[in-house]
């Protein structure tokens, strides 16, 4: 494989979880709820997926476990952010710590001998995967990988600006009070959006554990969830730029493996930090603060005062 093909291949593989996670997070943020806990839900999904797959010997059962665990974790976040109107950033960061601690604890107890698990193997799509360079990169993914991409496309279509869903979500994120007065179920939609983040983040985590490394290691996600959140911010809460940001971060991550093939010999640490550094630059360079949904992180309660 040429160095370039290797980079693209790795980039796509690493971008897929970012992509699906940020797709859900994009919907949620447009509805006004910020989930720092994408990271924690991804990790939870990865852990539950690995445990499920290891216990049953079936990757699909593992995926199911990941989804259930992701939904549970997201339900906790939704209760905190939407129902109890707690600080979304604080609870999100705390939820991540909880996920990290709990999965580390769980892995100590559960994976006593070996941490490899059965996973999804790549399925090369005929003809398409024969296209040079991008063929193997794009069309030689696992079923889970295709699923993630499909879900992302589905979300983009479903929540586009022109659809009823998209309109409702935009209105709720921009001005919850007005949306409420227009008869929209503000908190139900927000709760649902956070649950959606549960599904997409769990898929992303499962992809890491079951389709990528086929194992669970402590802190497997290592900040990928934060990158997904950063991608939404860097993408100014729009679908295409968010996708571009995900691809960009994926490539940056892939560079640490592909760099030697390019004859680039940088210390590993520099390559590992590069996606985060790029994320800082992207977040600060591109964002006009005005672009954010006006009601982002603001909980809604119908409290009319005297």
């Amino acid at each position: 494989m040429s160095a370039f093909a290797e980079l693209v291949d790795g980039g796509v593989r690493l971008a897929i979880p970012l992509l699906v996670a940020s797709a859900g997070e994009l919907v949620s943020e447009r509805a006004g709820v910020l989930n720092m806990s994408v990271e924690g839900i991804m990790l939870t999904g990865a852990f539950a997926g690995a445990v499920g797959a290891h216990t049953t010997g079936s990757a699909s059962a593992g995926l199911l476990c990941a989804l259930v665990a992701g939904l549970l974790a997201a339900a906790l976040q939704a209760v905190l952010s939407v129902t109890l109107r707690a600080d979304q950033i604080v609870t999100g960061v705390a939820a991540n710590a909880l996920a990290l601690g709990a999965t580390t604890y769980g892995a100590r107890l559960y994976f006593t001998e070996g941490r490899t698990v059965p996973g999804f193997d790549p399925v090369a799509l005929p003809l398409l995967s024969d296209i040079p360079v991008i063929g193997p990169a794009l069309f030689d993914q696992s079923v889970l990988g295709y699923g993630c991409v499909l879900l992302t496309v589905l979300l983009a279509v479903l929540f586009g600006r022109r659809t009823g869903f998209g309109l409702a979500v935009t209105a709720i994120g921009a001005d919850a009070e007005t949306a409420d007065r227009s008869g929209l179920p503000v908190n139900a939609v927000r709760f649902g959006a956070v649950l959606l983040v549960g599904v997409t983040s769990a898929l992303a985590g499962a992809h890491l554990a079951l389709a990528d490394v086929h194992a669970f290691t402590d802190n497997l996600t290592a900040g990928a969830g934060y990158l997904a959140v950063a991608a939404v911010i860097a993408g100014r809460w729009r679908a295409w730029p968010t996708l571009a940001a995900c691809a960009f971060f994926g490539l940056a991550q892939a560079l640490q493996f592909a760099a030697p093939a390019f004859g680039i010999h940088l210390p590993t640490a520099v390559l590992v930090m590069s996606p985060y550094l790029l994320a800082v630059v992207a977040v600060s360079g591109l964002v006009g603060a005005s672009r954010a949904p006006a009601g982002l992180t603001r909980p809604f309660a119908r409290e009319a005062r005297a």
């Binding site: 905190l80 109890l84 600080d87 939820a95 909880l98």
Partner: peptide, 11 residues
């Protein structure tokens, strides 16, 4: 983290 979630959630 359970501690902080409880306190933040009870706001």
């Amino acid at each position: 983290s359970v501690l902080i979630i409880c306190v933040a959630g009870a706001v």
